[in-house]
Nucleic acid binder design. Sequence first.
RNA 1: UCCCCGAUAGCUCAACGGUGGUAGCACUGGACUGUUAAUCCGGGGGUUGUAGGUUCGAGUCCUACUCGGGGAGCCA
Length: 427
Amino acid sequence: MYIDKAADYVGKVQTINGWVYNSRSSGKVAFVLVRDGSGIMQCVVAKSDIDESTFEAVRHLTQESSISITGAIHAEERAPGGHEMHVQKVEVHQAAVDYPITPKEHGVDFLMGNRHLWLRSKRQWAIMRIRATIVKSIRDYLDDNDFLLMDAPILSANACEGSSTLFSTDYFGVPAYLSQSGQLYNEATAMAFGKVYCFGPAFRAEKSKTRRHLTEFWMVEPEMAYCDWSQNCGVQEEFVTYIVQQVLEKRKEELAIIERDVSPLEKIATPFPRISYDEAVKLLQKAGSPIQWGDDFGGDEETLISNQFERPVFVHSYPKSFKAFYMKTNPANPQTVLCADLLAPEGYGEIIGGGQREDDFKLLLDRVHAEGLAEADYQWYLDLRKYGSVPHSGFGLGVERTVAWICKLPHVRETVPFPRLLEKIYP
RNA sequence: UCCCCGAUAGCUCAACGGUGGUAGCACUGGACUGUUAAUCCGGGGGUUGUAGGUUCGAGUCCUACUCGGGGAGCCA
């Protein structure tokens, strides 16, 4: 029996294969919390109901020992989760000694160093299950809305966006780089299949040491042919709303464990407000920010903007100067590009970067030159503008930032089983 | 890369420049028949991050280094 199915087994004798989460005894009755991956079950043993050796064995179980424990399942109000087991038999597979993560508080460094064990803790259990539901919702939404999965390569010969630092490796004697985005390849597959997405890890060798950065993170990137930047935003708001609703529906218990106040999440609904970069700058200046037109937004600016809204907010039409070369020039204002970033509420900042791609051969080539990129590296990409170019748009959603927002975590390091941080690659 | 902060028991933390703490958790022995991070009584457990310096005396002050945390820039 798995613990999350306990309600189906009331009155029946069952065996749980799991690990000791915590235990306490009071002389003639002992309580052992057993976890099996699906949940935690309180197992009770009374001295008067059982032979001496079994009682002593249960009383001396140590934290994280692996056990099979057998007994009758009862509905019990006093037990966490509403059910408990009245133990008849316990078999110890391996007795754990001095498990390092004790039930009191620990520091971040210690916990990260023991990440392989930390994942067993209740809070981490809840976060990882929410992450899994977010990932499933991402795939379900896209699959159900006729996006075709078209995974992009991880190894590539050239950079996708010149600005970020890349991890390099050796590819049979020539340099290769770990992908920082599937964006450019998505544009090729979108011209072949219409609506596509890629979903995989992305790598950025940035020396970023903040609560919002990992060097390896997961990103889902949909791309649509015959789609402008505004329609692109429409897809994003439906997509994000769906993800949030799925988590609210399927992960109530986990949200309760991490003590997430769900009322801000319940307010997430379409449409999301859209403001231009110009409007955002005015809004920031009004709020006392020293920002000038042409400056990029930092974390403080993003927080200031997103705090003005209860829903995620799009900021569109940024100045060309600090955006990637492939973004489409805004015909109404050539100083800007037709991009839109989505800022999550509650100060979480950018979770999506996206927009319309430059589909004009000449303008794109000019941007390649202007950015100092090697034209030869982008030959195949430029081909897409020579053979049936169409307006097309897409976006990239960062999974860890989304998990951090939905779980309201202070740092992305807890949103992935084994986070890769600046100069931290163990365990 | 830059700015700020920190490193004392396995963990979380105390300690005026004057003998390292009756500290909590964990472990261990005992008490307790409904505990919810149980409680109560006892026990063991330390090269104060590394290397120098100041001082009669340094966990404490100074310098360098190492590691970690927070923030900036860059980004999802």
